[in-house]
Design a protein around this nucleic acid. Sequence first.
RNA 1: GCGCCGAUGGUCUAGCGGCAUGACUAGGGCCUUCCAAGCCCUAGACCCGGGUUCAAAUCCCGGUCGGCGCACCA
Length: 606
Amino acid sequence: MQISDKQKYDKVIELSRRRGFLWRSFEIYGGTSGFWDYGPLGAALKRKIEEEWRKIYVIGEGFFEIETPTIGIKEVFVASGHVNNFVDVTVECTKCGAEYRADHLIRDATKPLVFEHGEDGTFSHVLETNVEGLDVKELDKIIREDDIKCPSCGGELGECYQSNLMFKTSIGAGEKKVGYLRPETAQGIFVDFPHLLRFYREKLPFGIVQIGKAYRNEISPRQGVIRLREFTLAEAEIFIDYMDDTHPTFERVEGEKVVLYPREDQNDEKEPKEMGIEEALNKKMIENEFLAYNIALAHKFLTKIGIPKEKIRFRQHKEEEMAHYASDCWDAEIETEQFGWIEVIGIADRGDYDLKAHSTASGQDLTLFKSFENPIKTKKKVIKPKMGKIGPVFKEKTPLVLKKLKEGKNEIKDGKISLEIDGEEITIGEEMYSLEEVEEEVYGERIIPHVIEPSYGVDRILYALLEHSYREESLNLETDLNLNDEKEDEKRIVLGFNAFLAPIDVAVLPLLTKEELIKKSRDVVEILKRENLLADYDDSGSIGRRYRRQDEVGTPFCVTIDFETLEDDTVTIRERDTMKQIRVEKKDLPNVLGRLREGEEFLKGP
RNA sequence: GCGCCGAUGGUCUAGCGGCAUGACUAGGGCCUUCCAAGCCCUAGACCCGGGUUCAAAUCCCGGUCGGCGCACCA
């Protein structure tokens, strides 16, 4: 059988395209890599995944959702570091015009530095120039100093320049203002920090989420739906007090077991290990309680939507792979057949990087006043100027003098204070001030919150879910009609989504294409619609064919209308996974379906 | 971005200088009392552009897209 020889990825993508989950974008024009459309069922599935996410973060955690533009002005991304750091350094040959990535060019041009003789008689280089983390000027310098030429024509290379991975655009007519399509939704949140702080009434910790599109102009996106140029992020930014990283509701994730793959174990090539989240925290494997909490939360989310536990692990980023803003980062990875372990969620400790950066760049105060439990009382001596003496002496310079004195950086020498005003040295004599001891109370301090950021790649999660939901079942049908001994097992393709995620909630099918049954079926569809269920009606082909159609798109239940329905107003509900049926009264249908959708065992009966 | 390979109905596929295969799917009808049954009918394709040739899906060149390897991946 041809189909079973194929990779699972191919089967999943084929089904997705055939049944309207995923389509390549711009297909009639040949398509463009890095862009995919969600078809009717794909869009529905994605929405339901996002809805589950909201249940956890918005309702569960109490993080409200905001929506900010997908285009950001240049200032935002200059401050955030994306304009400078989210780049590849490129260099162009002045003669033939070929373009190169400068770091690779240097690495290639300067290697091999050392050869090692392999056992199989081949040579391999073991050292290469370390170009990691060099900036434009440094790379440019190396090219000049080592006199590196164009590898294809030997021509002189031009100056290095940065090519940014953000999509650039202009705002308004005449390209007055430069904008970029956001590479993450987070910056919109940081920029709104003063509003958010007031909204949450100036108390830490608080969180805020955003679900939306983000854009990265990847040089060469591959791997189908895994690497996109336009993709959906579901991000939460959790603002915390770094002095107090006790999570207020840690008990919610107690007992959650996760597979962890810390940095050290990766370096030592050890296996990831499963452990309770409290243990990981106690052993300092995860440094921060908020990080640990959010790792557990991510694990809850992924298992809830139906990713098998054994296919989930959390891998800590190595130092060199972390983003420019992160001080620690754990990725949730899901194992897929096609791509191996893929990153689907990044849980980063962004520290105070972003707020600090935006504060500096905008000149705005992005701090929060944190009260001490007990005000700190200090006694200190302050200088009290005697205005009657100072005024007449310094005249119009008096305000400046007072200002200097207030700054408090005064050294008293032999009772005299020296100040520098407009480059001029002046002396305040003993008679011009008095020293008084005052008691000062400090009620708190201004702090910049730190940020913990769980960032979910919705598209990747959706793909992983499709792959893990896809199954083919062999049905051994004992047909007497099978005269030739060609024993061909019939194949059933099922997307085994949890009922609450399935794009179509329920299908209504007349057993036969008879007018009475069709009419009755239409009535049932109307009843289900009133319950806000997405009900599909289908009377084409045989009943078996219709069940298979629904199985293939993951519809959990089919309601079948037969001749008994006409007599006693009962219908059958057929479950996707077991293919078993129960008969219920038509009037109980919404109630029973509701309970089944909540996960009640199927054959328990009404 | 480099190298290798590929692109034919909605899906999968045969053909590889001379009428474009077949299966599945889909639409309509007949039949049919629960899991892709059967019968009849219908619809539907050579990635784009150039070249070679009497003739190109087929050969050549360029492009686009895809797969794999290298590289990249906040």
